[in-house]
Design a protein around this nucleic acid. Structure first.
Length: 269
DNA sequence: ATGACAACTCATAGTTGA
């Protein structure tokens, strides 16, 4: 089964790109980030028309995540396990941002825990937004430890907003001061792997050089100035079943594309 | 150091993102 993550950067602006990607690549489970929409204004009907079940954890204007499961392939609607990690945003009194949605994905041949996340960017740094990023990563680590303790097949995937290694970015120098590749950000990500989770793309591309994001500015796509921040982490049960991983690069080059490309894993039975 | 680019909002300028 194919499980994918795609930061769509706004559902209103991206619906045509999203629906054609779903129709062309047909993931069993798709995790979306930056839907930038409330649950009630998310265009669920258009996606359900393709045979997908939809569960959203939305927010106005910014953030927001969603999980889709392929009803045509026999999947049940995503069964909600948890939304949010209980971390308030960096501004006083703003409450929690919509960045985490964990579900049980129940298919005809297997059941999988799927956690869809949109980790805070953390810029500018230093400052409250960077502190928020690090606090969020600690809360994520605790939640992943709880999932681990349940000993269920689990996939934790999304936009982590962390460039894990120097060979995950086109230019270390250009990004050196960015929150995405600070030592604290990388150390927090490395702790997740140290806990036993498998970075699927890194495992099958150990030499790096695979990007999932290209900025809209400065002709970054045309110059291939990208980096890797969208990740798929696998529990041991899922890592044993890992058959393939990919980035749907071609979708980044289309008209009115997101600045992220979709990332997917294929898990055997 | 700044801006470039895009999406969004009680828009027409400001905020956020990476």
């Amino acid at each position: 089964m194919k499980i994918a993550t795609f930061n769509i950067n706004g559902i209103k602006a991206r619906l045509p790109r999203l629906t054609e990607w779903l129709a062309e690549t047909r993931p069993a489970v798709a995790c979306l980030q930056e839907i930038k929409s409330l649950d009630e204004t998310f265009p669920g009907k258009e996606i359900e028309a393709l045979g997908y079940h939809v569960l959203t954890h939305g927010q106005k204007a910014f953030n927001g995540v969603a999980v889709l499961t392929d009803g045509k392939a026999g999947f049940e609607p995503p069964r909600e396990v948890r939304r949010g990690l209980g971390i308030d945003g960096p501004k006083d009194g703003e409450g929690e941002q919509a960045r985490y949605l964990e579900v049980e994905a129940i298919g005809p041949s297997s059941t999988m825990r799927v956690a869809c996340l949109y980790l805070p960017n953390g810029n500018p740094r230093p400052g409250p937004k960077f502190d928020y990023k690090l606090a969020w990563m600690e809360a994520l680590r605790a939640r992943m430890a709880a999932i681990w303790a349940e000993e269920v097949p689990a996939v934790v995937l999304g936009d982590f907003n962390v460039i894990p290694e120097d060979d995950d970015v086109w230019s270390v120098k250009a990004m050196a001061n960015d929150a995405l590749m600070q030592p604290e950000s990388r150390a927090a990500y490395a702790r997740l792997l140290g806990d036993g989770w498998t970075d699927a793309l890194r495992t099958l591309n150990p030499r790096g050089g695979v990007w999932t994001y290209w900025d809209y500015q400065g002709g970054a796509w045309q110059r291939d100035h990208g980096f890797r921040i969208d990740h798929v982490l696998l529990s041991p049960e899922c890592a044993d079943r890992l058959e393939a991983v990919g980035v749907d690069r071609e979708h980044r080059g289309r008209e009115k594309a997101s600045d992220h490309a979709p990332v997917w894993v294929e898990l055997g039975t």
